[in-house]
Design a protein around this nucleic acid. Structure first.
Length: 500
RNA sequence: CGGGGUGUAGCGCAGCUUGGUUAGCGCGCCUGCUUUGGGAGCAGGAGGUCCCGGGUUCGAAUCCCGGCACCCCGACCA
Protein backbone atom coordinates (compact mmCIF):
# COMPACT_ATOMS: atom_id res chain seq x y z
CA UNK A 1 0.00 0.00 0.00
CA UNK A 2 1.23 3.45 -0.87
CA UNK A 3 -0.11 6.28 1.20
CA UNK A 4 -0.63 9.31 -0.95
CA UNK A 5 -2.99 11.34 1.11
CA UNK A 6 -1.00 14.23 2.48
CA UNK A 7 -3.82 16.00 4.25
CA UNK A 8 -6.91 15.25 6.24
CA UNK A 9 -8.98 17.57 4.15
CA UNK A 10 -12.34 16.15 3.09
CA UNK A 11 -13.57 16.38 -0.46
CA UNK A 12 -16.70 18.17 0.64
CA UNK A 13 -17.92 20.33 3.47
CA UNK A 14 -19.71 20.52 5.79
CA UNK A 15 -19.22 17.13 7.38
CA UNK A 16 -22.10 14.89 8.39
CA UNK A 17 -21.46 15.58 12.03
CA UNK A 18 -21.37 19.35 11.60
CA UNK A 19 -24.47 19.85 9.50
CA UNK A 20 -26.23 16.80 8.12
CA UNK A 21 -28.77 18.59 5.91
CA UNK A 22 -26.04 20.83 4.56
CA UNK A 23 -23.84 17.81 3.94
CA UNK A 24 -26.66 16.06 2.06
CA UNK A 25 -27.14 18.99 -0.27
CA UNK A 26 -23.43 19.31 -0.85
CA UNK A 27 -23.19 15.63 -1.78
CA UNK A 28 -25.98 16.05 -4.29
CA UNK A 29 -24.30 19.07 -5.77
CA UNK A 30 -20.71 17.90 -5.81
CA UNK A 31 -21.62 14.49 -7.22
CA UNK A 32 -23.64 16.25 -9.91
CA UNK A 33 -26.68 14.16 -9.13
CA UNK A 34 -29.32 16.83 -9.42
CA UNK A 35 -30.18 20.44 -8.80
CA UNK A 36 -33.35 22.24 -7.93
CA UNK A 37 -35.05 23.61 -11.01
CA UNK A 38 -36.43 27.10 -11.33
CA UNK A 39 -39.88 25.60 -10.95
CA UNK A 40 -40.51 25.48 -7.26
CA UNK A 41 -40.06 22.05 -5.78
CA UNK A 42 -38.92 20.41 -8.99
CA UNK A 43 -35.51 18.98 -9.70
CA UNK A 44 -33.28 18.59 -12.68
CA UNK A 45 -31.82 15.11 -12.49
CA UNK A 46 -28.36 15.26 -14.01
CA UNK A 47 -26.75 12.39 -15.93
CA UNK A 48 -24.99 10.80 -12.97
CA UNK A 49 -28.12 10.94 -10.85
CA UNK A 50 -30.28 9.70 -13.67
CA UNK A 51 -27.76 6.90 -14.19
CA UNK A 52 -28.56 5.75 -10.67
CA UNK A 53 -32.25 5.79 -11.45
CA UNK A 54 -31.65 3.83 -14.62
CA UNK A 55 -29.83 1.16 -12.63
CA UNK A 56 -32.65 1.00 -10.11
CA UNK A 57 -35.19 0.86 -12.90
CA UNK A 58 -33.39 -1.79 -14.92
CA UNK A 59 -32.77 -4.09 -11.98
CA UNK A 60 -36.24 -3.73 -10.50
CA UNK A 61 -37.94 -4.07 -13.88
CA UNK A 62 -36.48 -7.56 -14.18
CA UNK A 63 -37.94 -8.52 -10.80
CA UNK A 64 -41.31 -7.04 -11.65
CA UNK A 65 -41.57 -8.73 -15.03
CA UNK A 66 -40.30 -12.06 -13.78
CA UNK A 67 -43.35 -12.18 -11.54
CA UNK A 68 -45.73 -11.85 -14.45
CA UNK A 69 -46.32 -8.12 -14.50
CA UNK A 70 -46.39 -6.18 -17.74
CA UNK A 71 -45.46 -2.56 -18.22
CA UNK A 72 -48.03 -0.14 -19.55
CA UNK A 73 -48.53 3.59 -19.59
CA UNK A 74 -51.49 5.64 -18.45
CA UNK A 75 -52.14 9.37 -18.84
CA UNK A 76 -50.67 11.84 -16.41
CA UNK A 77 -53.93 13.83 -16.58
CA UNK A 78 -56.81 12.49 -14.58
CA UNK A 79 -60.37 13.85 -14.75
CA UNK A 80 -61.34 15.30 -11.42
CA UNK A 81 -64.40 13.06 -11.30
CA UNK A 82 -62.18 9.94 -11.26
CA UNK A 83 -60.33 11.15 -8.22
CA UNK A 84 -63.53 11.94 -6.39
CA UNK A 85 -64.72 8.36 -6.44
CA UNK A 86 -62.69 7.03 -3.54
CA UNK A 87 -63.37 9.02 -0.38
CA UNK A 88 -60.21 8.21 1.58
CA UNK A 89 -58.14 8.75 -1.52
CA UNK A 90 -59.58 12.24 -1.99
CA UNK A 91 -58.94 13.12 1.61
CA UNK A 92 -55.35 11.94 1.41
CA UNK A 93 -54.31 13.66 -1.76
CA UNK A 94 -56.59 16.67 -2.24
CA UNK A 95 -54.22 19.06 -0.50
CA UNK A 96 -51.30 18.33 -2.76
CA UNK A 97 -52.91 18.11 -6.16
CA UNK A 98 -51.82 20.16 -9.16
CA UNK A 99 -54.90 21.17 -11.13
CA UNK A 100 -55.15 22.04 -14.80
CA UNK A 101 -58.00 24.44 -15.45
CA UNK A 102 -57.20 25.87 -18.88
CA UNK A 103 -56.02 24.51 -22.19
CA UNK A 104 -54.65 27.55 -23.97
CA UNK A 105 -52.64 30.73 -23.51
CA UNK A 106 -53.82 34.05 -24.90
CA UNK A 107 -52.03 37.32 -25.52
CA UNK A 108 -53.58 40.01 -23.41
CA UNK A 109 -51.96 43.40 -22.81
CA UNK A 110 -48.67 41.97 -23.96
CA UNK A 111 -48.74 39.09 -21.53
CA UNK A 112 -49.68 35.47 -21.90
CA UNK A 113 -52.66 34.55 -19.79
CA UNK A 114 -54.63 31.31 -19.48
CA UNK A 115 -57.60 31.05 -21.78
CA UNK A 116 -59.96 28.29 -22.78
CA UNK A 117 -61.31 27.28 -19.42
CA UNK A 118 -61.94 23.57 -19.11
CA UNK A 119 -65.45 22.41 -18.27
CA UNK A 120 -64.03 19.87 -15.87
CA UNK A 121 -60.65 20.53 -14.26
CA UNK A 122 -57.99 17.90 -14.77
CA UNK A 123 -55.61 16.90 -12.02
CA UNK A 124 -52.05 15.81 -12.57
CA UNK A 125 -51.66 12.30 -11.18
CA UNK A 126 -50.32 12.10 -7.65
CA UNK A 127 -50.63 8.32 -8.15
CA UNK A 128 -52.65 6.34 -10.68
CA UNK A 129 -55.10 4.14 -8.82
CA UNK A 130 -58.02 6.19 -10.10
CA UNK A 131 -57.21 6.22 -13.78
CA UNK A 132 -55.87 2.68 -13.93
CA UNK A 133 -58.94 1.53 -12.06
CA UNK A 134 -61.09 3.04 -14.79
CA UNK A 135 -59.25 0.99 -17.41
CA UNK A 136 -59.34 -2.13 -15.30
CA UNK A 137 -63.09 -1.89 -15.04
CA UNK A 138 -63.28 -2.07 -18.82
CA UNK A 139 -60.68 -4.77 -19.26
CA UNK A 140 -62.05 -7.15 -16.65
CA UNK A 141 -65.29 -9.02 -17.15
CA UNK A 142 -64.56 -12.58 -16.19
CA UNK A 143 -62.51 -14.37 -13.57
CA UNK A 144 -60.53 -15.56 -16.62
CA UNK A 145 -59.27 -11.98 -17.00
CA UNK A 146 -57.69 -12.19 -13.57
CA UNK A 147 -55.21 -11.62 -12.20
CA UNK A 148 -54.39 -8.46 -14.11
CA UNK A 149 -50.82 -7.55 -13.35
CA UNK A 150 -49.66 -4.11 -14.47
CA UNK A 151 -46.78 -1.80 -13.77
CA UNK A 152 -45.87 1.62 -15.02
CA UNK A 153 -42.72 3.74 -14.85
CA UNK A 154 -43.83 7.31 -14.69
CA UNK A 155 -43.62 10.72 -13.12
CA UNK A 156 -46.13 11.91 -10.57
CA UNK A 157 -46.84 15.29 -9.03
CA UNK A 158 -47.56 16.09 -5.42
CA UNK A 159 -47.53 19.75 -4.50
CA UNK A 160 -45.25 19.57 -1.50
CA UNK A 161 -44.92 22.23 1.15
CA UNK A 162 -41.26 21.68 1.83
CA UNK A 163 -39.34 20.18 -1.04
CA UNK A 164 -35.99 18.47 -0.57
CA UNK A 165 -34.08 17.16 -3.52
CA UNK A 166 -34.78 13.45 -4.12
CA UNK A 167 -36.57 13.08 -0.79
CA UNK A 168 -39.59 15.20 -1.36
CA UNK A 169 -40.05 17.00 -4.65
CA UNK A 170 -43.20 18.22 -6.34
CA UNK A 171 -42.51 15.99 -9.30
CA UNK A 172 -40.74 12.69 -8.96
CA UNK A 173 -40.16 9.52 -10.89
CA UNK A 174 -41.36 6.19 -9.71
CA UNK A 175 -42.66 2.81 -10.54
CA UNK A 176 -46.21 1.94 -9.61
CA UNK A 177 -47.56 -1.57 -9.83
CA UNK A 178 -51.31 -2.09 -10.00
CA UNK A 179 -52.91 -5.49 -9.88
CA UNK A 180 -56.41 -6.90 -9.70
CA UNK A 181 -57.29 -10.32 -8.32
CA UNK A 182 -60.28 -12.58 -7.89
CA UNK A 183 -59.75 -13.22 -4.22
CA UNK A 184 -58.69 -11.34 -1.17
CA UNK A 185 -56.13 -13.99 -0.38
CA UNK A 186 -54.51 -13.74 -3.78
CA UNK A 187 -54.35 -9.95 -3.61
CA UNK A 188 -52.82 -10.18 -0.17
CA UNK A 189 -50.21 -12.62 -1.45
CA UNK A 190 -49.38 -10.23 -4.26
CA UNK A 191 -49.03 -7.38 -1.78
CA UNK A 192 -46.62 -9.37 0.33
CA UNK A 193 -44.71 -10.76 -2.64
CA UNK A 194 -43.87 -7.30 -3.97
CA UNK A 195 -43.16 -6.12 -0.46
CA UNK A 196 -40.51 -8.86 -0.21
CA UNK A 197 -39.15 -7.84 -3.61
CA UNK A 198 -38.53 -4.33 -2.28
CA UNK A 199 -36.99 -5.60 0.92
CA UNK A 200 -34.64 -7.87 -1.01
CA UNK A 201 -33.88 -5.21 -3.59
CA UNK A 202 -32.90 -2.72 -0.90
CA UNK A 203 -30.68 -5.25 0.82
CA UNK A 204 -29.03 -6.97 -2.14
CA UNK A 205 -28.84 -4.18 -4.69
CA UNK A 206 -28.82 -0.93 -2.74
CA UNK A 207 -26.95 -2.50 0.19
CA UNK A 208 -29.44 -0.84 2.51
CA UNK A 209 -30.80 -2.85 5.43
CA UNK A 210 -34.42 -2.08 6.13
CA UNK A 211 -36.99 -2.70 8.76
CA UNK A 212 -40.09 -3.99 7.10
CA UNK A 213 -43.49 -4.00 8.58
CA UNK A 214 -47.08 -2.98 8.35
CA UNK A 215 -48.17 0.62 8.61
CA UNK A 216 -50.56 1.60 11.35
CA UNK A 217 -54.03 2.73 10.44
CA UNK A 218 -53.22 6.42 10.50
CA UNK A 219 -50.07 6.00 8.40
CA UNK A 220 -51.76 3.89 5.73
CA UNK A 221 -51.99 4.85 2.10
CA UNK A 222 -55.24 6.75 1.50
CA UNK A 223 -57.71 4.15 0.29
CA UNK A 224 -55.76 1.08 1.37
CA UNK A 225 -56.93 -1.60 3.79
CA UNK A 226 -53.38 -2.48 4.66
CA UNK A 227 -50.06 -0.83 3.86
CA UNK A 228 -46.57 -2.21 4.25
CA UNK A 229 -43.35 -0.27 4.13
CA UNK A 230 -39.64 -0.78 4.24
CA UNK A 231 -38.04 1.74 6.54
CA UNK A 232 -34.36 2.57 6.09
CA UNK A 233 -32.19 4.37 8.59
CA UNK A 234 -30.23 7.41 7.52
CA UNK A 235 -26.93 8.30 9.16
CA UNK A 236 -28.57 11.01 11.22
CA UNK A 237 -30.79 8.38 12.80
CA UNK A 238 -33.94 9.35 10.97
CA UNK A 239 -36.17 6.92 9.14
CA UNK A 240 -36.85 7.04 5.44
CA UNK A 241 -39.77 5.18 3.95
CA UNK A 242 -38.08 3.53 1.00
CA UNK A 243 -40.87 1.52 -0.54
CA UNK A 244 -44.50 0.65 0.01
CA UNK A 245 -46.90 -2.09 -0.93
CA UNK A 246 -50.64 -1.76 -0.43
CA UNK A 247 -53.52 -4.17 -0.17
CA UNK A 248 -56.42 -2.08 -1.40
CA UNK A 249 -59.16 -4.61 -0.72
CA UNK A 250 -62.23 -3.79 -2.76
CA UNK A 251 -62.12 -0.06 -2.10
CA UNK A 252 -60.96 0.98 -5.52
CA UNK A 253 -62.81 -1.86 -7.21
CA UNK A 254 -66.01 -0.47 -5.78
CA UNK A 255 -65.30 3.14 -6.60
CA UNK A 256 -64.09 2.34 -10.14
CA UNK A 257 -66.50 -0.52 -10.66
CA UNK A 258 -63.94 -3.25 -11.28
CA UNK A 259 -66.25 -6.26 -11.41
CA UNK A 260 -66.01 -9.80 -12.74
CA UNK A 261 -68.17 -12.88 -13.08
CA UNK A 262 -66.71 -15.72 -11.06
CA UNK A 263 -66.81 -19.37 -12.03
CA UNK A 264 -70.24 -19.71 -10.41
CA UNK A 265 -71.60 -16.89 -12.57
CA UNK A 266 -71.74 -14.49 -9.66
CA UNK A 267 -70.79 -10.82 -10.17
CA UNK A 268 -68.08 -9.76 -7.73
CA UNK A 269 -65.77 -6.87 -7.08
CA UNK A 270 -62.09 -7.53 -7.68
CA UNK A 271 -59.40 -7.09 -5.06
CA UNK A 272 -56.60 -4.74 -6.01
CA UNK A 273 -53.07 -3.91 -4.90
CA UNK A 274 -50.57 -1.18 -5.63
CA UNK A 275 -46.90 -0.84 -4.80
CA UNK A 276 -44.10 1.55 -5.61
CA UNK A 277 -40.64 2.90 -5.12
CA UNK A 278 -39.42 6.29 -6.25
CA UNK A 279 -36.39 8.44 -6.95
CA UNK A 280 -36.38 8.90 -3.20
CA UNK A 281 -34.24 5.76 -3.18
CA UNK A 282 -31.39 7.90 -4.47
CA UNK A 283 -31.70 10.04 -1.36
CA UNK A 284 -31.61 6.84 0.68
CA UNK A 285 -28.41 5.74 -1.04
CA UNK A 286 -26.77 9.05 -0.24
CA UNK A 287 -27.77 9.17 3.40
CA UNK A 288 -27.17 5.49 4.08
CA UNK A 289 -23.74 5.17 2.47
CA UNK A 290 -22.25 8.63 2.05
CA UNK A 291 -19.18 9.77 3.93
CA UNK A 292 -17.45 13.12 4.34
CA UNK A 293 -15.96 12.80 0.87
CA UNK A 294 -19.30 12.38 -0.88
CA UNK A 295 -21.57 9.57 -1.89
CA UNK A 296 -20.34 5.97 -1.88
CA UNK A 297 -22.11 3.79 -4.38
CA UNK A 298 -22.69 0.08 -4.06
CA UNK A 299 -21.17 -1.49 -7.20
CA UNK A 300 -24.54 -2.95 -8.17
CA UNK A 301 -26.01 0.50 -8.57
CA UNK A 302 -23.02 2.52 -9.74
CA UNK A 303 -23.52 3.68 -13.34
CA UNK A 304 -19.78 3.19 -13.76
CA UNK A 305 -18.14 0.79 -11.35
CA UNK A 306 -14.60 1.50 -12.42
CA UNK A 307 -13.18 4.70 -13.80
CA UNK A 308 -9.77 4.65 -15.40
CA UNK A 309 -7.79 7.86 -15.11
CA UNK A 310 -4.74 8.15 -17.37
CA UNK A 311 -1.85 10.05 -15.86
CA UNK A 312 0.37 11.61 -18.49
CA UNK A 313 1.31 15.23 -18.31
CA UNK A 314 4.04 14.94 -20.89
CA UNK A 315 2.72 14.97 -24.41
CA UNK A 316 5.23 12.38 -25.53
CA UNK A 317 3.76 9.71 -23.31
CA UNK A 318 0.08 10.55 -23.64
CA UNK A 319 -0.66 8.25 -26.54
CA UNK A 320 1.04 5.31 -24.89
CA UNK A 321 -0.77 5.85 -21.61
CA UNK A 322 -4.10 6.23 -23.34
CA UNK A 323 -3.57 3.02 -25.28
CA UNK A 324 -2.67 1.25 -22.09
CA UNK A 325 -5.78 2.63 -20.39
CA UNK A 326 -7.95 1.39 -23.24
CA UNK A 327 -6.33 -1.98 -22.96
CA UNK A 328 -7.13 -2.11 -19.23
CA UNK A 329 -10.70 -1.10 -19.99
CA UNK A 330 -11.14 -3.95 -22.45
CA UNK A 331 -9.55 -6.35 -20.05
CA UNK A 332 -11.90 -5.40 -17.23
CA UNK A 333 -14.99 -5.45 -19.40
CA UNK A 334 -14.48 -9.20 -19.61
CA UNK A 335 -14.83 -9.45 -15.85
CA UNK A 336 -18.11 -9.94 -14.05
CA UNK A 337 -19.82 -8.63 -10.96
CA UNK A 338 -23.26 -9.72 -9.84
CA UNK A 339 -23.85 -11.59 -13.13
CA UNK A 340 -23.18 -8.52 -15.25
CA UNK A 341 -20.16 -7.41 -17.22
CA UNK A 342 -18.25 -4.68 -15.44
CA UNK A 343 -19.16 -1.12 -16.31
CA UNK A 344 -15.85 0.57 -16.98
CA UNK A 345 -15.35 4.16 -17.98
CA UNK A 346 -12.24 5.77 -19.35
CA UNK A 347 -11.95 9.39 -18.32
CA UNK A 348 -9.81 11.01 -20.98
CA UNK A 349 -11.04 14.55 -20.51
CA UNK A 350 -8.34 17.19 -20.89
CA UNK A 351 -8.27 18.20 -17.26
CA UNK A 352 -5.80 17.49 -14.50
CA UNK A 353 -5.82 13.85 -13.48
CA UNK A 354 -5.83 14.72 -9.82
CA UNK A 355 -9.02 16.70 -10.30
CA UNK A 356 -10.61 13.75 -12.05
CA UNK A 357 -9.71 11.55 -9.14
CA UNK A 358 -11.50 13.81 -6.66
CA UNK A 359 -14.50 14.20 -8.93
CA UNK A 360 -15.01 10.46 -9.12
CA UNK A 361 -14.50 10.08 -5.41
CA UNK A 362 -17.25 12.62 -4.82
CA UNK A 363 -19.43 10.79 -7.33
CA UNK A 364 -18.95 7.61 -5.35
CA UNK A 365 -17.41 5.42 -8.03
CA UNK A 366 -16.40 2.17 -6.29
CA UNK A 367 -12.96 1.91 -7.86
CA UNK A 368 -10.70 4.42 -9.58
CA UNK A 369 -7.78 2.98 -11.52
CA UNK A 370 -4.89 5.30 -12.25
CA UNK A 371 -2.44 4.41 -14.98
CA UNK A 372 0.75 6.12 -16.08
CA UNK A 373 4.14 5.34 -17.55
CA UNK A 374 5.35 3.77 -14.35
CA UNK A 375 2.48 1.28 -14.51
CA UNK A 376 3.16 0.48 -18.13
CA UNK A 377 6.77 -0.29 -17.31
CA UNK A 378 5.85 -2.59 -14.45
CA UNK A 379 2.84 -4.04 -16.28
CA UNK A 380 0.51 -3.03 -13.49
CA UNK A 381 -2.04 -0.39 -12.45
CA UNK A 382 -2.82 1.65 -9.34
CA UNK A 383 -6.14 0.72 -7.79
CA UNK A 384 -7.94 3.07 -5.44
CA UNK A 385 -11.01 1.81 -3.63
CA UNK A 386 -13.75 4.18 -2.52
CA UNK A 387 -13.53 2.48 0.87
CA UNK A 388 -10.03 3.87 1.41
CA UNK A 389 -9.43 6.84 -0.84
CA UNK A 390 -6.10 7.74 0.74
CA UNK A 391 -4.29 4.68 -0.53
CA UNK A 392 -3.62 2.93 -3.80
CA UNK A 393 -2.82 -0.68 -4.44
CA UNK A 394 -0.35 -1.59 -7.13
CA UNK A 395 -1.77 -4.59 -8.99
CA UNK A 396 -0.19 -6.56 -11.81
CA UNK A 397 -2.29 -6.92 -14.92
CA UNK A 398 -2.50 -10.67 -14.68
CA UNK A 399 -4.08 -10.44 -11.27
CA UNK A 400 -6.21 -7.39 -12.02
CA UNK A 401 -9.56 -8.81 -13.12
CA UNK A 402 -9.99 -11.20 -10.19
CA UNK A 403 -8.69 -8.56 -7.80
CA UNK A 404 -11.27 -6.05 -9.05
CA UNK A 405 -14.06 -8.61 -8.90
CA UNK A 406 -13.15 -9.35 -5.30
CA UNK A 407 -12.88 -5.71 -4.39
CA UNK A 408 -16.32 -4.94 -5.83
CA UNK A 409 -17.75 -7.79 -3.79
CA UNK A 410 -15.96 -6.43 -0.74
CA UNK A 411 -17.29 -2.90 -1.31
CA UNK A 412 -20.83 -4.14 -1.79
CA UNK A 413 -20.73 -6.23 1.36
CA UNK A 414 -18.88 -3.63 3.42
CA UNK A 415 -21.38 -0.91 2.60
CA UNK A 416 -24.18 -3.22 3.62
CA UNK A 417 -22.43 -4.37 6.75
CA UNK A 418 -21.61 -0.82 7.84
CA UNK A 419 -25.18 0.28 7.25
CA UNK A 420 -26.51 -2.75 9.11
CA UNK A 421 -24.18 -2.16 12.04
CA UNK A 422 -25.28 1.46 12.13
CA UNK A 423 -28.91 0.38 12.12
CA UNK A 424 -28.31 -2.18 14.88
CA UNK A 425 -26.45 0.39 16.95
CA UNK A 426 -29.23 2.93 16.61
CA UNK A 427 -32.26 0.88 17.50
CA UNK A 428 -33.06 1.21 21.14
CA UNK A 429 -35.08 -1.74 22.37
CA UNK A 430 -34.82 -1.38 26.13
CA UNK A 431 -38.05 -1.37 28.02
CA UNK A 432 -38.14 2.39 28.56
CA UNK A 433 -40.42 4.62 30.52
CA UNK A 434 -42.43 7.10 28.50
CA UNK A 435 -40.19 9.91 29.73
CA UNK A 436 -36.98 8.14 28.73
CA UNK A 437 -38.45 7.14 25.40
CA UNK A 438 -39.54 10.72 24.80
CA UNK A 439 -36.15 12.23 25.42
CA UNK A 440 -34.50 9.55 23.31
CA UNK A 441 -36.83 10.17 20.38
CA UNK A 442 -36.57 13.92 20.77
CA UNK A 443 -32.82 13.62 20.30
CA UNK A 444 -33.54 12.13 16.89
CA UNK A 445 -30.57 9.79 17.12
CA UNK A 446 -32.28 6.57 16.18
CA UNK A 447 -35.27 4.24 16.22
CA UNK A 448 -37.17 3.07 19.23
CA UNK A 449 -38.46 -0.49 19.22
CA UNK A 450 -41.21 -0.72 21.79
CA UNK A 451 -44.49 -2.32 22.68
CA UNK A 452 -47.65 -0.54 21.63
CA UNK A 453 -51.22 -1.10 22.75
CA UNK A 454 -52.68 -0.41 19.33
CA UNK A 455 -54.65 2.70 20.19
CA UNK A 456 -54.49 5.69 17.88
CA UNK A 457 -54.01 7.93 20.90
CA UNK A 458 -50.81 6.20 21.91
CA UNK A 459 -49.67 5.99 18.33
CA UNK A 460 -49.22 9.74 18.23
CA UNK A 461 -47.84 9.87 21.75
CA UNK A 462 -44.45 11.07 20.55
CA UNK A 463 -45.75 13.80 18.29
CA UNK A 464 -44.16 16.49 20.45
CA UNK A 465 -40.82 14.75 20.00
CA UNK A 466 -41.22 14.85 16.22
CA UNK A 467 -41.46 11.08 16.07
CA UNK A 468 -44.11 8.90 14.50
CA UNK A 469 -44.91 5.24 14.34
CA UNK A 470 -42.96 4.09 11.31
CA UNK A 471 -44.13 0.51 11.10
CA UNK A 472 -45.06 -2.61 13.01
CA UNK A 473 -42.01 -4.72 12.31
CA UNK A 474 -42.56 -8.29 11.27
CA UNK A 475 -39.25 -9.70 12.41
CA UNK A 476 -38.32 -7.70 15.50
CA UNK A 477 -39.67 -8.08 18.97
CA UNK A 478 -39.61 -5.42 21.61
CA UNK A 479 -38.77 -6.19 25.20
CA UNK A 480 -41.38 -5.69 27.89
CA UNK A 481 -45.09 -6.28 27.75
CA UNK A 482 -46.69 -2.89 28.26
CA UNK A 483 -47.38 0.00 25.91
CA UNK A 484 -44.52 2.50 25.97
CA UNK A 485 -47.02 5.36 26.01
CA UNK A 486 -49.89 4.32 28.27
CA UNK A 487 -48.35 1.36 30.15
CA UNK A 488 -51.36 -0.85 29.59
CA UNK A 489 -50.72 -4.45 28.51
CA UNK A 490 -49.59 -4.59 24.91
CA UNK A 491 -48.53 -7.24 22.45
CA UNK A 492 -47.78 -5.28 19.29
CA UNK A 493 -44.23 -4.30 18.38
CA UNK A 494 -43.71 -0.86 16.92
CA UNK A 495 -40.90 1.26 15.54
CA UNK A 496 -41.06 4.92 16.53
CA UNK A 497 -38.68 7.44 14.96
CA UNK A 498 -38.25 10.82 13.45
CA UNK A 499 -38.51 10.55 9.72
CA UNK A 500 -38.05 12.23 6.40
C1' C B 1 -48.99 28.41 5.95
C1' G B 2 -46.29 29.90 10.95
C1' G B 3 -40.98 30.85 13.40
C1' G B 4 -35.87 31.88 12.26
C1' G B 5 -31.96 32.81 8.70
C1' U B 6 -29.73 34.12 4.01
C1' G B 7 -29.64 36.71 -0.92
C1' U B 8 -22.67 40.45 -3.19
C1' A B 9 -18.45 36.86 -9.85
C1' G B 10 -19.58 29.83 -11.69
C1' C B 11 -19.07 28.12 -6.17
C1' G B 12 -18.01 29.62 -0.99
C1' C B 13 -17.90 34.12 1.54
C1' A B 14 -16.18 39.32 3.66
C1' G B 15 -17.94 44.31 3.56
C1' C B 16 -23.65 46.38 6.06
C1' U B 17 -23.67 47.79 12.84
C1' U B 18 -21.49 53.67 12.28
C1' G B 19 -23.74 55.53 4.11
C1' G B 20 -18.21 58.25 1.40
C1' U B 21 -12.26 56.44 -3.73
C1' U B 22 -12.64 52.37 -9.05
C1' A B 23 -16.94 46.60 -4.27
C1' G B 24 -13.10 42.83 -2.21
C1' C B 25 -11.10 37.73 -0.75
C1' G B 26 -10.60 32.19 -1.42
C1' C B 27 -11.67 28.33 -4.87
C1' G B 28 -12.82 27.58 -9.93
C1' C B 29 -12.16 29.48 -15.17
C1' C B 30 -8.62 31.57 -19.40
C1' U B 31 -3.16 32.66 -20.98
C1' G B 32 2.11 32.01 -20.18
C1' C B 33 6.25 29.98 -17.53
C1' U B 34 7.77 26.53 -13.65
C1' U B 35 6.38 21.65 -11.47
C1' U B 36 5.58 16.60 -13.43
C1' G B 37 2.37 9.85 -9.99
C1' G B 38 -0.95 14.05 -7.67
C1' G B 39 -6.10 18.20 -4.00
C1' A B 40 1.03 22.37 -7.07
C1' G B 41 4.01 27.49 -7.61
C1' C B 42 4.61 32.35 -9.95
C1' A B 43 2.80 36.12 -13.23
C1' G B 44 -1.05 38.10 -16.03
C1' G B 45 -6.39 38.00 -17.36
C1' A B 46 -11.82 37.40 -17.99
C1' G B 47 -16.04 37.51 -15.11
C1' G B 48 -20.76 41.80 -10.90
C1' U B 49 -28.06 45.27 -12.89
C1' C B 50 -24.30 43.88 -4.69
C1' C B 51 -32.20 39.46 -5.40
C1' C B 52 -36.21 43.00 -7.41
C1' G B 53 -39.05 47.66 -6.90
C1' G B 54 -39.71 52.18 -4.46
C1' G B 55 -37.96 55.84 -0.76
C1' U B 56 -34.33 58.90 2.31
C1' U B 57 -29.62 61.40 0.83
C1' C B 58 -25.01 65.51 -2.43
C1' G B 59 -23.95 60.21 -2.28
C1' A B 60 -26.91 53.51 -0.81
C1' A B 61 -24.28 46.75 -1.20
C1' U B 62 -24.83 49.58 3.53
C1' C B 63 -30.50 53.16 6.20
C1' C B 64 -36.29 52.84 5.53
C1' C B 65 -40.82 50.56 3.14
C1' G B 66 -42.78 46.76 -0.05
C1' G B 67 -42.07 42.39 -2.87
C1' C B 68 -39.56 37.76 -4.52
C1' A B 69 -36.44 33.59 -3.95
C1' C B 70 -33.76 30.06 -1.31
C1' C B 71 -32.21 27.49 3.30
C1' C B 72 -33.22 25.63 8.40
C1' C B 73 -37.09 24.35 12.14
C1' G B 74 -42.57 23.10 12.49
C1' A B 75 -47.68 21.42 10.19
C1' C B 76 -48.15 17.74 5.37
C1' C B 77 -45.95 13.67 2.74
C1' A B 78 -42.98 8.48 -1.56
Amino acid sequence: MIHLSSSNKNAISPTRANDFPGWYQEVVKSAELAEMAHVRGCMVIKPWGYGLWERIRDLLDVEIKSRGHENAYFPMFIPLSYIQQEAQHVEGFAKEMAVVTHHRLEQRDGALVPGGKLDEPIVVRPTSEAIIGASMSQWIQSYRDLPLLLNQWANVVRWEMRPRVFLRTSEFLWQEGHTAHASSQEAMEETMEMFRVYETFARDKLAIPVISGEKSQTERFPGADRSFSIEAMMQDGKALQAGTSHYLGQNFAKSASIKFLDSQGELKFAFTTSWGVSTRLIGALIMAHGDDDGIRLPPTIAPSQIVIVPISREETTQAAVLDYAKHIKQLLEQAVFSDEALRVRLDDRPIKSVDKKWQWIKKGVPIVIEVGMRDIESNSVSVRSRLSIGETDNVGIDALAPMIENELVRIQSTLFKDARDFLDDHILCDNLSFESASSYLASGKGFLLAKWCGSSVCEVGFRDQGATLRCLPSSLEATGSTCVVCSSPASQDAIFAQSY
